[in-house]
Simulated assay, not measured.
Amino acid sequence: MASSPIDECIGVFRWVLDVQSEWPCSDSIKSGREAATLWALGKDNQRALNFLTAEEREKVLRFYHIRDVKLSLGSQLLKHCAVVKSCRVPWSESRISKHDNHKPCYVPKNGSGKHLEFNVSHHGSLVALAGCTDKDTQIGVDVVQVDTVKDVSKVRQEGWSSWVSTYAAVFSDREVQDIAIWKPSGSLDGDALLTAKLRHFYAHWCLKEAYVKMTGEALMAPWLQDMEFRNVQAPRAASDLSVKDSKEDWGEAFSDVEVWRDGKQVTGVRLELQAFRDDYMIGTASSRLDAPYSPYKLLDLQQDVYSAAEAN
């Protein structure tokens, strides 16, 4: 999906990075600090790490699993790249700040220049970032991978309703019931039926995560069970779309969800859920209804990130 130049975007720009494609290696060969250190010695990996501050490199290399190292590295690179491209500052000045609620942001020196509000999420092998240069706009993003192999096995052991009930602390009573009794149209059965129900569950999860991240609160927010999403649908995966509708890896986008809290419908928030490939969904939440969402852009490290870092 092509997108407009980021510095011309008056709304919310959205990026995705596939770290496994960019740094291909087996994530299961070794784990531990030694493995992370050895991985970091690779020429291409050193190049990426050298774009970070010493503190950021140390944070990245603390992770036990190589896959988490790559996700953390990708996340840090996207943050800096977003600041450089949207706020037009040199990479060396793209220092990441935090609001009082610990959400990351970019605040220019002496308050002169563009601000950047953004949010980052990662799961599986994807890192997603959504950002906006309107400092009064709150942004939340969440990416989930539907691991049907793992989840179907657990569901078969525990039963669907029992498995759903383990997440009752995250959802309202109505949401739990909706997820538990929901059935897709058509005559699916077996693993196909469970996969459809799992996608519906993860659609709820992804939307709620994006929303609470927009507010700056975690899934332990005291009002979490008082807020619910209605009319939730899982967007169709890329392979489920006809050839003429399919745009590379991107599946269907869904935005007709309703947000309710304490029995009243919440307005003034824009939500969208997009399918990516066959097993991912990405949710975006914005506190501005009139801020347009750019199409997601799948980034290339060399063309989109390294070029920005080495340009100054």
Rank of each mutant, 00 (worst) to 15 (best):
V243N: 11
K244F: 10
D245A: 13
D245H: 10
D245T: 04
D245Q: 13
K247H: 11
E248S: 15
E248Q: 13
D249E: 14
D249Y: 07
W250R: 09
W250M: 14
G251T: 06
G251I: 05
G251R: 12
E252Y: 10
E252F: 11
A253F: 03
A253T: 15
A253S: 15
A253K: 13
A253E: 14
F254G: 01
S255P: 02
S255R: 08
D256K: 14
V257A: 15
V257D: 02
E258F: 10
V259C: 15
W260E: 11
R261C: 13
R261W: 04
D262I: 01
G263L: 11
Q265M: 15
Q265D: 01
V266F: 06
T267S: 15
T267H: 12
T267C: 07
V269S: 01
V269A: 03
V269D: 03
V269Q: 01
R270Q: 13
R270A: 10
R270E: 02
L271F: 11
L271E: 05
L271K: 05
E272I: 04
E272L: 08
L273S: 07
Q274M: 05
Q274K: 12
Q274Y: 00
Q274S: 13
A275P: 09
F276W: 14
F276C: 04
F276Y: 15
F276P: 00
R277V: 02
R277T: 07
R277N: 05
D278Q: 10
D278Y: 05
D279H: 13
D279S: 14
Y280Q: 05
Y280L: 04
M281L: 12
M281G: 04
I282N: 10
G283R: 02
G283I: 00
G283S: 13
T284G: 02
T284H: 09
A285R: 02
A285M: 04
A285P: 08
S286C: 15
S286E: 04
S287A: 08
R288W: 02
L289I: 07
L289W: 02
L289E: 06
L289N: 06
L289G: 01
D290V: 00
D290L: 01
D290Y: 00
A291H: 01
P292M: 00
P292W: 00
Y293M: 06
S294M: 07
P295W: 04
P295H: 08
Y296D: 03
Y296N: 06
Y296Q: 08
K297P: 00
K297E: 10
K297H: 13
K297G: 00
L298P: 03
L298K: 11
L298H: 04
L299N: 09
D300F: 04
